[in-house]
Amino acid sequence: MYGKKASQLCQELSRIEDDQLHPFNNDLFNQVLEESNEHFYQLESRMTKMHADGLDLQTTQNQDYYGGLIHHLSLLRNKRCLLTYIYQRTQNIQRLRWQLGAVLPEDIQERLNHFEKEYFKSYSDLIGSYMTSIDLDLVVDVTPPKDPYIQVRVMDDVGEVFLDDQSTSLLRNSIHLMKRTEAEPLISQGLLEEFAG
């Protein structure tokens, strides 16, 4: 059935939990692309036939016209589904930039295809240069601050870092009171966790 594969592609998106990014479904994606080109071929051959028969494409409403129309509409539908698939994934990719920063962990990298990696990079540069142009880091402070300081537990040996212009040694399992703005990037990288003592 026409459009079936494209709708499978979109169904895949809806099955995915909100913040999951699945590996790119190259197989199905390419099949939909092939199908689209086949639709076009079918459409073209019908139009050529009508042309050869000397019929006016605008006014004739014979079987070739409706056949072609169905291929045209199926193609539009496929285009829509393909773009939806890509677009939804870019939404996830953009969100990852805000959550995880400019460098993606290995396991997520693997789920992106070549173009998506490029897109991530250009989006990341874009955010970076916007923040530079307004001279303000927008990635921190995602939730309204209750207290300027929070208590955090160190998940893994991080070593010496500069916090509030003082060198602090973050050892595994040690507990620190630090500025929320400084802790947040480290928390989102998974190096610290908020510690509610």
């Binding site: 677009y87 870019t90 295809n113 173009f115």
Partner: peptide, 9 residues
């Protein structure tokens, strides 16, 4: 975004 759409679809 346009470039990305262009390359993929």
């Amino acid at each position: 975004l346009h470039k990305h759409f262009q390359q993929t679809v």
